[in-house]
Design a protein around this nucleic acid. Structure first.
Lengths: 208, 208
DNA sequence: CCGTGTGAACAAATTCACAGCC
DNA sequence: GGCTGTGAATTTGTTCACACGG
């Protein structure tokens, strides 16, 4: 499965999102001609991408919405739960704890940590904030799949190192810094400013 | 400037991030050999990418950190301010209003809107929440470059339409839905679940 | 002599176009 | 007849390798 291109994998969640909408709309089947545009790609790319993993469609009919949904969830691993720990319980951390979109897709935050002693013990969205010093022992005593970094930029690298040393191999990084990745560690950045800048570039270079 | 590949443009903000770190570290110059890894790409790609826009380096020396920073900011348009309106003042909206990373890069939120009457008039991070009904007239009476969508998924498409009709041509979408884009409208999605799923895919297919 | 800038070689991704199945 | 699945053609992106400037 290492022969599947990265870019293909990155589109699978997008297809799943589109299927969730189709399911909510009560559609039973969908053609690549419709699924493509809903995911922002063209139809033949949908077919090509899916063909890396199997033959999920039926000629003359298209794809069964619910079946393809289940198939993608299985491929993405979201047919099971993934447990996460949050580091940083400031504004961003609070919003992350309150975000309803994680649990519905199988991502569960099981603990939150912060260095700020004034926050420790506080309940945020029903979650007690623990002292950062307990992070390593917590991770080592439980199955934790993913670490979420929501600390200030200056603390991000150190936090990533601590998480990695504690045995975590996947990090969702909200801090606006690029983390240099040790081999075997997966990192995804959530960085709205980078997203904004890729729009302002085009707006700044318009011919009009 | 339309001949510049999209992928190249997407990497410019990443280079800028790396340069910001280098500047904070007090480095005066940087070679592509160092800048590449810090941005998660290899050195020759840095040189090739930058060469689309000019010759910023000096042979035998590398790039001047501050000068390249300024050059990239100019290219990305972040040498000026971009004004944004926020739609949705729930948990997510609050975190967005409190996020310090926007202003430092020239992105300023000038108004916040919500449909929830119990929120209207409330002060969040010093910003008064306005009724959603005032959104269109506000946008039409001011220069607003970017709309930020932080509403529940079901309301996202309608919000995008309203922003677009009011004349906004760039949207930062935090709602977990893919917006079908009218031509001329730029959209970037900030979706942590999609980021997570592209990691769980690989973790689910490991040979080990 | 070191490191950029860049054409040329290569690799990867997307689109085309159609055979085959429902 | 309609739509998938897929090799082949094409386009796009990356890496190589080296000439050239500081």
């Amino acid at each position: 499965m290492n022969l599947v291109p990265n870019l293909v994998v990155d589109r699978l969640p997008v297809y799943l999102r589109a299927l969730n909408v189709l399911e909510a709309e009560g559609k039973k089947t969908v053609r690549s001609e419709e699924l493509g545009p809903r995911a922002g790609v063209n139809p033949e790319l949908v077919r090509k991408d899916l063909s890396y993993f199997g033959r999920f469609g039926k000629q003359g009919r298209g794809y069964e919405v619910v079946a393809l949904q289940a198939e993608l969830r299985r491929l993405l691993g979201t047919d099971r739960q993934w447990s996460m720990v949050l580091v940083g319980a400031g504004h961003l951390g609070r919003a992350i704890l309150a975000y309803p979109g994680f649990v519905s897709e199988g991502f569960v935050i099981i603990a939150a940590f912060d260095t700020d002693t004034s926050l420790i013990g506080e309940l945020i969205s029903g979650m007690r904030v623990r002292p950062a010093g307990e992070l390593v022992s917590f991770v080592q005593s439980r199955r934790v799949d993913i670490g979420i970094i929501a600390v200030p930029p200056a603390a991000a690298r150190r936090t990533a190192e601590v998480l990695h040393e504690a045995g975590i191999r996947a990090i969702l990084n909200y801090a606006p810094v690029m983390l240099r990745l040790p081999p075997g560690l997966l990192v995804r950045n959530v960085d709205p400013v980078i997203a904004l800048e890729s729009m302002t570039f085009w707006r700044s270079h318009e011919v009009a």
